[in-house]
């Protein structure tokens, strides 16, 4: 299946993905509601977006007591708004931290791959996010381990 491949080296931390995502998810530019989120590494000098890996045995889906999470035609785990009651079991079941709760709507929300045209990938000016046929993978781990080392030395001791 096609997944969001993240090449953290290319990210410049401009957060445009968050704006585009929040617009697709909510109809307004509201990065607090983005389901892709950019993290800083290396004392602010590097950034990388992080989002749902669309894991095969989906913790969120199996946790839902009302079957409000299902699999979309493009393979995304998606929340059915009219079924979700907002109990948040999915948010503690997901070990990746990529399903969220919207206090305004009282619903869970997560990356739905924009039905196959992910807004984040389209918005990314540096192709740090691409929508490609690939195996899901820990895109950021090695990058972050290396990049964040500097941060460990400069700030943790403070």
């Amino acid at each position: 299946m096609k997944v969001l491949r993240i090449t953290p080296d290319r990210c410049t931390g401009c957060m445009r993905c968050e704006l585009a995502c929040s617009y697709m998810q909510t109809g307004t530019f509201q990065p607090a509601k983005s389901v892709i989120r950019v993290s800083p590494f290396e004392a602010y000098a590097s950034y990388a977006p992080y989002t749902c890996p669309q894991c095969a045995e989906a913790w969120c889906l199996t946790a839902c007591p009302v079957e409000a999470i299902t699999v979309s035609p493009v393979g995304a785990k998606v929340v059915l708004d009219d079924v979700c009651v907002g109990c948040k079991l999915c948010t503690i079941a997901c070990p990746y931290g990529t399903i969220f709760y919207n206090a305004e709507t009282g619903k869970a929300f997560k990356c739905n791959l924009c039905d196959g045209q992910p807004a984040c990938a389209e918005a990314c000016p540096t192709q740090a996010i691409e929508y490609v046929e690939a195996e899901t993978h820990d895109w950021l781990g090695a990058f972050a381990a290396e990049r964040a080392a500097r941060h460990l030395t400069t700030l943790a001791s403070a």
Binding site: T12, C14, M15, R16, E42, P125, T126
Partner: peptide
């Protein structure tokens, strides 16, 4: 070096 861009900048 690394890019360190402002909001939404390419």
């Amino acid at each position: 070096h690394r890019g360190y861009q402002c909001n939404a900048c390419g």
